[in-house]
Amino acid sequence: MNCQLCQKELDAYREGKLPGDMMTQVESHLRACETCSGIYRLQVLADKVIDQEIEIESDPFLATRIMAGIDNLKGSGYEPANVFIRVLKPVLGTALMVAAIFFGIMLGNLSQPVTDRERIPVELALIDDAAIESVNIFSND
């Protein structure tokens, strides 16, 4: 067995997935070849590094830390009040703004002077005292 083939089979060898005769060939090559045995040791070490990292336990107070973090969130929780704040508040704000603009326009129209007297029907014009009687008749002139 050459080094290239041995190194290719090292993963399967470590996992014990090689057929019997191949296992023996890899084993005997590893005993004879220092380069391949060095690589093999490094791969075993890599597995150990991962295994040791897997065994590390998280902080025992992590759950408490997380819950405290959630409590500190602004507007935390999924209470109905939050639904109101998140959805209804902007909708209500927009509706109020539209209403304010509408009433503004209405008020603006009301304060405009009536300039089209000609359009007042004759019947109504008769009731309109100001149109019939001139204030000039009360003056001495």
Binding site: L62, A63, I66, M67, I70, Y78
Partner: peptide, 11 residues
Amino acid sequence: KGDKEKFRMLV
């Protein structure tokens, strides 16, 4: 529905 404390179970 608002039972925030139940999240601890998932954690």
